[in-house]
Simulated assay, not measured.
Amino acid sequence: MVNRMILNETSYFGKGAIEEVPVEFKKRNFKKAIVITDKELIQFGVATKVTDLLDKAGINYTVHDGIVPNPTIQNVKDGVVAVKEAGADCIIAIGGGSPIDTAKAIGIIVTNPEFADVRSLEGVADTKQPCLPILAVPTTSGTAAEVTINYVITDEENQRKFVCVDPHDIPIAAFVDSDMMMGMPKSLAAATGMDAMTHAIEGFITKGAWEMTDMLHLKAIEIIGRSLRASVNGDETGREAMALGQYIAGMGFSNVGLGLVHGMAHPLSAWYNIPHGVACASLLPTVMKYNKAFTGEKYREIAEALKIEGAETMMIEEARDAACEAIDRLSRDVGIPATISELGVKAEDLQKIAEDAFKDVCTPGNPRDTSVEEIIGLYQSLM
């Protein structure tokens, strides 16, 4: 079997990494950038940390800040227009998953105009050209959009999210600077951090997992498990560790896929506009328990990565339960809602939501094959 690994050409890590943005811009002989971000990151002076550096370096750029959480087809279309009007030859994407995901879709359409119908990008689109070059600056510790070949767009008209997988969309450079993440409120640090843990665990147990990605996911689980609580409390060391942990998880899952947590989370976000990280975090402990009998020795390895005492000598059922309980406890400790009804989910919608989850591109990667009926039962258990 042939396994493929696709990663960024270049990535910078640590405090001050954003200072390399103008260096990379000039080194690559770009002429004009479009900064894609959201209004809050401009308002609260986060994105301006980067634009100030661009100003200082005399770099020509324009700003497009119309991106919303759970970015929409219209967001992508507006961004394509903005890029063309600006005459930009590169994108600087600043934000969490939403701005970076949107930048990927925009960049793909600009260089592959035959995919101007955004829905045509769903799944594995047969694009021919690399997207407009993207320099990605993450501001949250969770999505790893800066290192993945995936992005997710919301189809508001049809009340669904769709996942796009395209090796041509990966940012050419990433700047993982913990200073850009220090402004996250506790709730966002918790949600994005648990999203990163979901990436690591689902990537580790997905059907496509193999030795190299296992190595990455186990290290990510270890880093996130010991750092997330401190990160949520605003600890600088914790935030820096989470910045690295979420990136490592992205290196893995981008190349092997995810599972049922993401399959079930996507329709929750599409139906109720629930932040993606919150949706994943609320589902993870329950879906872990659902999957545990289908994971061989992998939950023991998760327990060991989480430094659970005695995990290496426990009976396998005990080790699986210990891993599930540790993730459940972590989720509670960082304030993730215990039920999806708290997030606005309605019982009368569960049939249709479960049908959407079953059809989601992430669901087939789950280690346990599922059905619409079983997915309904999982949602009901969380109401």
Rank of each mutant, 00 (worst) to 15 (best):
A190D: 14
A230N: 03
S98T: 08
I172P: 02
S269Y: 07
A191C: 10
K289Y: 14
A103H: 02
A303D: 15
E85A: 11
C131D: 12
F13E: 10
L228I: 01
V176G: 08
D65Q: 06
D195N: 12
F162T: 11
M194P: 02
I100F: 06
I170N: 00
G257M: 14
C362P: 02
K84C: 05
A190I: 04
V110W: 00
I67G: 01
V361M: 14
D55W: 01
V232S: 02
C280K: 07
P22G: 03
P99A: 09
M288H: 06
W210T: 06
A338C: 08
P337T: 00
Y379L: 10
R239M: 09
E373I: 08
S331C: 10
I302W: 06
V110L: 09
P367I: 03
V147T: 15
E317R: 06
Y272R: 03
V80E: 00
K49L: 06
I353H: 07
A174F: 02
R239E: 00
V63C: 07
D179Q: 10
H276Y: 04
N3I: 04
F13V: 10
G193P: 05
C131A: 15
N366M: 01
S187D: 15
T102M: 10
L135T: 03
E222F: 09
V163N: 13
Y290D: 03
P367T: 09
T286S: 14
T339G: 07
M314V: 01
I34M: 05
A281V: 01
P364K: 13
P113L: 03
V76D: 00
D328C: 05
V152T: 08
G14L: 09
G66I: 04
G344Y: 01
H266W: 08
K161D: 04
L7H: 10
C131N: 13
Q351E: 15
A196H: 00
G365Y: 01
V63P: 04
D89S: 04
L121E: 03
R160M: 13
G365V: 01
T370F: 03
A322S: 13
K346W: 00
L330H: 09
R300M: 08
M212L: 14
G79M: 00
K104L: 09
V23S: 11
M194R: 03
N366T: 02
C90P: 13
K186W: 07
S178C: 14
Y247V: 13
A125R: 10
G87M: 03
T339H: 11
V76E: 02
S371T: 15
L330N: 06
T213R: 12
V232L: 02
R300G: 10
